[in-house]
Design a protein around this nucleic acid. Structure first.
Lengths: 257, 257
DNA sequence: CGGGCTTTTGAGGAATTTCAACGTATGTGG
DNA sequence: CCACATACGTTGAAATTCCTCAAAAGCCCG
């Protein structure tokens, strides 16, 4: 914990300067959005190819190396983002450095929804990541013409809300073992939903980040994973992959049965 | 804990039969919605008096006594609601009866947002409560004509999401004392936002419900409140009221400072 | 006034954290 | 190519917070 900045959670005002932001070609024969790899996963899929071009005009690309900050809690919320490749974590800090990761974001996930003019959390990449960046103001103007995007965003927000409620159940009422089991299953389900293989799951997340997501310490996470491994529920493989050996049993464990 | 139903959390299918549902007079000279006490707090305030009449046509009133269930997790999500008076709790259950309350709802709060066709949580009144009930399907049809309501709902969902993230920080990373302090402040802020007095706050919530909201046991809640009382931070008054004696100190405590 | 419910208080125990040390991987520079 | 630095992961032992079990006290309402 001592290796984390002891910065207060609300007094910072950082948004990545985004020197890497790459403006998009303007309708140079077919919007780049039309060929976006995560188009079907993200809110953009509410639009037709033609309409998509309007979106393209207010967006640019951002590249982050692993561990780079995108913005900090409290900074003016000038942009929203869509993850295209890689993965992000979003988190909140207490003044003494305690951290709660409130979510991990994968390709297609939306980032930066906020009603206030400041971000309610910080966002940082957990591996090499690219995002699609929208100017909030311009996007909002666009939304007025495309209510179906707004509807899609409402659906996304509702889904996120449901996830958040699941997470509250995990944080408030589950044991360490149940938390880890729930987490592995969540990753597996999520991989499946975005069209990746759901069983040997890739785990590009450090023990520390898992701990901060599940309300545990790294030591407890490590011990618990060892336990799961020893009892034959999972197998740790090379390349940060985890094989779920008995999905049903893991599901029972996650629900405390 | 033994006094709670040991019902699984996903296999129930209850929505209050609502014999008490009172259909609204149909534009009998001025929509009842126009005179709604929580109109300014709820999503309805996106509409003009005239437009409000459309909303009135798809809504009815529901009355609940204290402790009555409105719907259970897993039931078909046929309605959404607005709290008009009283208060509700929403929660999720584990199969062994462990419970996580994910939120308390007060007048003006919106209830039932879901993308799936089943409720993701159960809802129950914590005191005598009335709600405004909308048929989901009819409301959604209406939304197509009133995108500004959809925008308002998106704003509401975003606010709820921010609250949920605060709650995750509380559940995952705060101590018992910090949790209680955060909770009291949250109630106070909320009361203020809906135009009630923010200092001697009314606490219509049992120790058990507080515990299930904060990821603690009733005993720990009781002990911690006693501690706060003894140290002069709060005073327990008659009628379930709590006076915050030193708001600043309480805020510091809530943030772990 | 008595019964049922919620709240408080106490004592002991358990899960998890803390502190500390060691092991493992990865990359850098000599 | 190897030594070294650095980050991450594992393991152990002690400490602590919070939970569990138990009982008494307070409160509300018929």
């Amino acid at each position: 914990m001592a290796d984390r900045p002891l910065t207060g959670s609300n007094d910072r005002s950082f948004e990545n300067t985004l020197r890497d932001a790459i403006p998009r070609p303007q309708s140079a024969g077919g919007s780049p959005c039309a060929a976006c790899p995560v188009r079907d996963l993200s809110f953009c899929n509410a639009l037709t190819d033609e309409e998509l071009d309007h979106l393209n005009r207010v967006s640019s690309d951002v590249s982050l190396t692993s561990g780079q900050s995108l913005f900090d809690e409290g900074a003016p919320a000038d942009h929203v983002y869509n993850v295209t490749t890689g993965a992000m974590k979003v988190y909140k800090l207490l003044s003494d450095g305690r951290r709660q990761i409130t979510g991990f974001l994968f390709p297609g996930d939306f980032l930066g929804l906020a009603t206030r003019d400041a971000y309610a959390y910080s966002a940082e990449s957990i591996c090499s990541t690219t995002l699609c960046r929208f100017n909030r103001q311009k996007l909002e103007n666009l939304l007025k013409d495309f209510p179906k995007v707004e509807r899609r965003l409402l659906g996304i927000a509702s889904d996120e809300l449901a996830l958040a409620q699941d997470q509250m159940l995990i944080l408030g009422r589950k044991t360490a073992k149940e938390k880890i089991a729930s987490f592995l299953l969540m990753l597996s389900n999520r991989a499946q939903k975005s069209g990746n293989k759901s069983n040997p799951i890739s785990l590009p997340i450090t023990r520390t980040d898992m701990a901060d997501f599940l309300g545990l310490t790294t030591e407890t996470v490590s011990r618990t994973i060892t336990q799961l491994k020893t009892s034959g529920m999972i197998t740790l493989m090379s390349g940060n992959e985890v094989r779920l050996e008995n999905r049903d049993a893991l599901e029972d464990m996650a629900e405390g049965e």
